[in-house]
């Protein structure tokens, strides 16, 4: 992979060049105690000294609230206004390698047979400038799910911080090259052969063996008591799903008045009891244990079977923010250790 060097102090100039060329830049910013992705114009606006953001960058390609269509009532007549989506070319700067990998998971859902024009348009117009991880915390487990702190998968440019003042830049895709071409003077050649980034990358211990987990899951499926025990402290909110960069489940609702209205979608979670409730009152998943099982099975078994990838990138957000300290990696470890 072609390597360049970018001085940290040059990032501001890069942003300015991109903004002049009409790009929108989204980066991690403090919001109270949380770190979330917001529009930025200068590097100083971005947060520093954090391991991982609170919210994932998925709202850039899959907003928490999105219009699907509008309609107007004209007497008895209904006029449907197809929601045309226009997207400004966007750069997400400063996401982690785990987040970069999550886009492929979302894309698998939104491209499955039917192409979701909203997601696809946003993804088409988004460039990913990832920053590798030089620190991790006990909640990270990217290395257990086929990822890593310097993994380039899903990135267009991968920046690794060296020596406090410089990034190693790896040009992963043509889209990444297009960014470099916007301000080539800022990207110096990497002198003297390939720079080895491994020495600055965070150490993320492997928590469980993925192959063992995948093998254990179908076997444990019917052990209701096992899942009930794991989920005993789960409060059944949607925080894990909403923070997860690889969760794509949504609700569709209408809001209208006498003149007309909209049909929209918003984030939803299989952890909420309402998710599977039938109008008849029947609910296929009545207990939190069943809903917890669904979350784990969907991400680590069904998704893999149907769409070829695990639907988890090990970012740890679900566990960091869970009000009941559920800790997904811990539960997965326990699952992978269940005996035949």
């Amino acid at each position: 992979m072609e390597q360049r060097l970018l001085k940290r102090e040059s990032v501001g100039q890069l942003f300015a060049k991109l903004a002049d060329a009409g790009w929108r830049i989204v980066g991690p910013c403090r919001s109270g105690e949380a770190v979330v992705f917001k529009d930025v114009h200068a590097p100083q606006e971005m947060a520093a000294d954090y391991v991982q953001t609170t919210l994932s960058p998925k709202s850039v390609v899959f907003p928490r609230y999105e219009l699907l269509l509008r309609y107007r009532f004209e007497g008895k007549d209904v006029k449907i206004d197809d929601e045309q989506i226009t997207v400004v070319p966007t750069v997400i700067f400063g996401l982690r390698p785990c987040d970069a990998r999550s886009l492929a998971v979302l894309n698998a859902v939104f491209s499955w047979d039917y192409q979701d024009v909203f997601f696809k348009t946003r993804l088409e117009n988004t460039t990913i400038i990832t920053v590798s991880c030089t620190t991790s915390d006990p909640y990270c487990f990217c290395t257990s799910v086929n990822g890593g702190p310097g993994d380039p998968q899903g990135s267009d440019l991968l920046l690794t911080p060296f020596d406090a003042d410089e990034y190693l830049v790896e040009i992963v895709t043509d889209r990444g090259r297009a960014i470099v071409d916007q301000a080539p003077e800022l990207f110096a050649p990497a002198a003297g052969g390939e720079v080895n980034k491994v020495r600055v990358l965070a150490d993320v211990p492997v928590r469980f063996e993925m192959s063992r987990l995948v093998e254990c899951l179908p076997r444990v499926f019917n052990d209701e008591a096992f899942w009930a025990e794991q989920a005993m402290r789960c409060l059944g909110c949607g925080a894990c799903a909403f923070l997860c960069p690889a969760c794509a489940c949504f609700d569709i609702q209408d809001e209208a008045d006498r003149q007309g209205g909209v049909r929209y979608r918003c984030w939803d979670s299989c952890g909420l009891s309402l998710f599977t409730l039938h109008t008849s009152g029947h609910n296929p998943r009545t207990t939190q244990g069943q809903r917890w099982r669904q979350r784990v099975m969907h991400k680590f078994s069904y998704f893999k079977d149907r769409l070829g990838t695990i639907a988890c990138v090990g970012c740890g957000r679900c566990s960091r923010s869970c009000p009941a300290d559920m800790n997904l990696a811990e539960h997965l470890q326990a699952l992978a250790e269940t005996s035949a």
Binding site: W112, C249, F250, D268, T276, H278, Y302
Partner: peptide, 15 residues
């Protein structure tokens, strides 16, 4: 029958 919303395999409900 299962609870459905999108009908096209994306919203996750009928899984």
């Amino acid at each position: 029958e299962n609870r459905m919303k999108c009908g096209v395999g994306k919203c996750g409900r009928c899984n």
